[in-house]
Deep mutational scan, measured.
Amino acid sequence: QTVQFNGLEYHFPNPEEAEKFAKKVAKELGGEVRVKDGRWQID
C-alpha cells in the first residue's frame, strides 16, 4: 500500500498502516486524504 504526499511515496505492508499514517499526516498538515488509483494521496 502506498501513501503519496509532497512528491514522496511511503510504502506500507498493509492497508491499515497506510490508512493510519495518511490520516495522521493529513491531520498534521491540515490536508485532505483521498484514494486515487489504489494509493492514498494527501493534498
Rank of each mutant, 00 (worst) to 15 (best):
F5S: 02
H11T: 09
G38N: 08
D43N: 11
K20C: 15
F5G: 01
E9L: 14
D43T: 14
E19L: 11
Q4M: 14
V35M: 14
G30Y: 05
K23A: 08
K36V: 14
D37S: 05
E19I: 07
D43M: 14
A26T: 04
E28Q: 10
W40L: 07
I42G: 03
Q41Y: 15
G38W: 03
G31F: 13
A22E: 00
K24S: 09
N14K: 04
K23D: 05
A22N: 01
E16I: 09
K20I: 10
D43I: 15
K24Y: 11
E19G: 04
V3I: 04
K27C: 15
D37R: 04
E32I: 14
Y10H: 04
A22F: 04
E28L: 14
V33D: 02
E16A: 10
K23F: 12
A18D: 00
F21Y: 07
W40P: 02
I42A: 03
V35Y: 15
E17L: 09
V35S: 06
G31D: 03
V35G: 04
V3K: 01
K36P: 03
F12N: 00
G38M: 03
A26F: 05
W40Q: 02
T2W: 14
E32M: 11
Q1L: 12
E19R: 08
K20D: 07
V3T: 01
P15Q: 09
W40H: 02
V25R: 06
N6M: 13
F5D: 01
V25Q: 05
Q4A: 13
E28W: 14
P15C: 14
L8G: 06
E16K: 08
L8N: 10
F12W: 01
N6E: 06
F21L: 01
E9H: 08
K36I: 14
Q4E: 14
F12S: 00
R39D: 04
Q4H: 12
V33M: 07
E32T: 15
K36D: 06
A26L: 06
N6S: 07
Q4I: 15
Q4S: 14
F12M: 02
Y10R: 04
F12E: 00
G31E: 05
K23H: 12
V35T: 06
E28K: 10
P15D: 07
E28D: 09
D37A: 05
D37W: 02
T2V: 14
G30D: 06
E16Y: 12
V35W: 15
K24A: 12
K36M: 09
F12A: 01
Q1M: 12
N6F: 10
Q1H: 14
P15I: 09
F12G: 00
R34N: 08
P13Y: 07
R34S: 13
F12D: 00
A22H: 01
E19D: 04
I42K: 02
G7P: 00
R34W: 12
L29V: 14
D43R: 11
F12K: 00
E16F: 11
I42R: 02
A18Y: 02
L29D: 04
V33N: 02
W40Y: 07
L29C: 15
G31Q: 07
L8F: 12
I42T: 03
D37G: 08
I42W: 05
E16R: 08
T2G: 02
W40G: 02
A26M: 06
A18F: 02
G7R: 05
E19N: 04
T2Y: 11
K36S: 09
P13R: 11
G31K: 08
P15S: 11
D43F: 15
A18H: 00
P15F: 11
F5V: 13
E17K: 05
H11K: 08
R39F: 12
F21K: 00
F21E: 01
D43L: 15
V33R: 01
